[in-house]
Design a protein around this nucleic acid. Structure first.
Lengths: 260, 260
DNA sequence: TGCGCGGACTTGTCATAACAAGTTATTCCA
DNA sequence: TGGAATAACTTGTTATGACAAGTCCGCGCA
């Protein structure tokens, strides 16, 4: 060993365990494209000599990256970078950004518009308003690694929606803004999902082929007191996204909510 | 210490890796109450000498149990059995038939096959088996008003699956059969969904155009004791189905099995 | 030409060893 | 008696070494 290797520094400022620093370094290289999706990572023994650490350390770092879903390993072949198949856990009602940042991905939102307009019949009905009442409409495209992942259309009652700033919308989840900035604790959401084909608009927004499969999610989020506060239509690229949840079998009460 | 230990056998019939056998043995002891909830497990070095294995093996087994949520570790203190989770139930885990019959629809299942075969790697992994273990494979097409709605591929461990009768599968949910006929209370399910395009097989099974959008759901259902019992791939016609849920925002989600 | 068998890779498993770091209880000194 | 040092635990990190098992490619034999 005794490499005198330049890369050996491994973010020396951190006092944290060696494998954690290696994990971070590799995560960065994956996210910045040094190790591209579906590409092969250096083998374990290569990483050992690259960074002057033992194989057990390399394996712990790789194990963490695997748990996080960034890489997968094939016995006898090698270690490979996963295609960024973002997944969102629905069980804990959370926003897209919340879910992604937990994985170490950085999300940017392109805000196409943020405007106040009269509600149409469907939106009014969902939000418990009268058609024609003012609502705030938001259209955002969410980018993961500079690639569009989802198109999100959001409607909020005007008094609430007008407290959201366009600037904040670029980086933050509406969920977090509602809870932290507006003081609206969230309660539950009703969610419906189906698969649709991309139309002209989706095709352009998500940069996919016309006719590509898209997962459509309609979500009506309620405040803790039961008032509907956030009505959304989300369109996720089918090839880049998975929705994950954990469902507990209802033993007792409250089994509604499925298939109304 | 050394050997000559009776417990050293560690389920010797299994050829599987040592740490996996140790994991299973410890899991059983936790479930049967040998190590009660909140109780302290033997220390790592005690486990080493108990079973005559190295600490690296013990740690790998404990790590797996920790990932599964059965234990938690406190640096400097020891390893403890998690309290059995307090479900704060989110959505009803129910079968397709259950859901539909509540809506007043009648469901018929066409059973394409029901057979016993060796598990491939993925199925084995999900069900906690070894590749090559016998599993029961079921392929059904569910018909609503004589129109195909979904294609369902199901795998169950052979001892369990062989207790399902082909005749019953035509009208009843596997969920109900497991609970009522096999005495296997169900716990939770992990679910992942995405949108895909129909391939040749799906096209024929669901009588749709090639390239039509299909919602793909992968569901791994666990018994109440946590053992995986039912692994499924469900393909729903995008134009005929919606999956609906109600999600509650988790306030005090269980991060690491708590220790108030 | 085709097929099988090695050899050279890869990741997976396991042992031994050592030290770091957190927790707890005891001991010893002021 | 009060409090700090300490010993004796615990889990966490890391190195070295070895062999097993899966994959792939090419060589040689039929």
């Amino acid at each position: 060993m005794s490499k005198s290797n330049p890369a050996l520094v491994l973010l020396p400022d951190l006092p944290s365990p060696l494998y954690a620093r290696l994990t971070e370094l590799l995560r960065l290289r994956i996210l910045d494209g040094t190790y591209p999706p579906h590409g092969r990572m250096p083998s374990e023994s290569e990483l050992c000599s690259m960074f002057g650490v033992s194989r057990i350390t390399v394996r712990q770092a790789l194990g963490d990256l695997q748990k996080a879903g960034l890489i997968f390993r094939i016995h006898g072949k090698g270690t490979f970078v996963s295609r960024p198949k973002a997944f969102q856990n629905v069980t804990a009602l959370e926003g897209f950004g919340e879910a992604m940042s937990r994985m170490g991905y950085e999300i940017i939102n392109r805000v196409d518009y943020l405007r106040t307009a009269p509600a149409d019949a469907r939106v009014a009905e969902r939000l418990g308003l009268v058609a024609g009442d003012q609502v705030v409409e938001i259209r955002r495209v969410r980018l993961l690694n500079r690639e569009p992942v989802s198109l999100e259309l959001t409607w909020l009652p005007a008094p609430l929606g007008e407290r959201l700033s366009r600037h904040e919308l670029v980086t933050r989840d509406i969920f977090l803004m509602l809870e932290n900035d507006c003081g609206v604790p969230l309660g539950h959401a009703d969610v419906a999902m189906d698969a649709v084909l991309a139309d002209e608009d989706l095709m352009q927004a998500l940069q996919i082929e016309e006719g590509a499969p898209v997962m459509h999610i309609e979500r009506l989020t309620h405040a803790a007191d039961g008032r509907p506060v956030d009505y959304e239509h989300l369109y996720f690229r089918g090839d880049a996204f998975q929705y994950r949840l954990r469902i507990d079998r209802a033993r007792s009460a409250q089994r509604g909510a499925v298939h109304e």
